[in-house]
Amino acid sequence: MGAEMDLSVRIGALTLKNPLIAASGCFGYGVEYADLVDLASLGGVAVKGLFLAEREGHPSPRIVETPAGMLNAIGLQGIGVRRFIFEKLPELRARRATVIVNICGSTLDEYVEISRILSDAEGVAAIELNISCPNIKEGGMQFGCSLTGTFDVVSAVRKVTRLPLIPKLTPNVTDVASFARASADAGADAVSLVNTFLAMAIDVETRRPKISNVVGGLSGPAIRPIAVRMVYECRQAVKIPIIGMGGITDARDAIEFMIAGATAVQVGTANFVDPFIWPKLIDGISDYMRRHQIARVADLVGTLDTAAGDKEWTAS
């Protein structure tokens, strides 16, 4: 097969050069990594969640390691959208990063206002609507855990921006596919999932919670099988592209999400462990495509084979 392999994928009107995106909250504002990672080589960079104003977040300890994962309650510390545009966006543009801005609001109006501001800024490729932060009361969960809330916030933001709009869904609901459907109905260009799973860890000697916020969000390899299942469910519910994430640590994990139905993937926690993971992921996906004779990575999306297995074989 020819040397020309096409790693690009489309999210609405946006074309990503490959399906690999740095997950929000796990890559700072991108600029922190600019000397270690060629930002232009990534499909996209989803920056740390931004409110309208600056926020200080929760006291430490903010994270704790758990089996094959970690719990975090950062509390969405951030510099606010205006400082982001002024202080970080120019460098991201200079580094030719595809910038996906993750935004949070305490009210519907705040989401709308931030989206308006971002639509006027130069160099924003897409907006990821964080309606799924489990760690703060006003972190959008009141939108992300209610179907009408999801529909309303996506519709309202849709009215003020032409930027690709990607609601980020919480896994802390019974039927995540219905939230993907509500997002699509409201005009979303894609959905991303999953945000972290609400979870908890206790020091049994002191009987104290291991993080200051008592509860936090679980991420990392521990959550991957659940996240894959949720992507699979959403794939069957909506036609818009899905950006899958949750515990991806190597190319095979990324491919698993794509087979389940994700057009692109995000990598969060694994970037903490190995900031040099990105070229390895790209090489791993290319290698897989070569071995399976897939010319366009987009052709891999949603190719799960659920046909019955080998008929010859019978259970004993």
Binding site: C26, G28, E32, E56, S60, P61, I63, I74, P275
Partner: peptide
């Protein structure tokens, strides 16, 4: 407790008082 050591995760914050008396992480 640090998640990444590179500024990516905002785990390792320390409350610092600035000149105006406000505390920043």
């Amino acid at each position: 407790i640090m998640g990444c050591g590179l500024g990516g995760c905002y785990s390792c914050v320390v409350p610092m008082r600035s000149d105006d008396g406000r505390v920043h992480h």
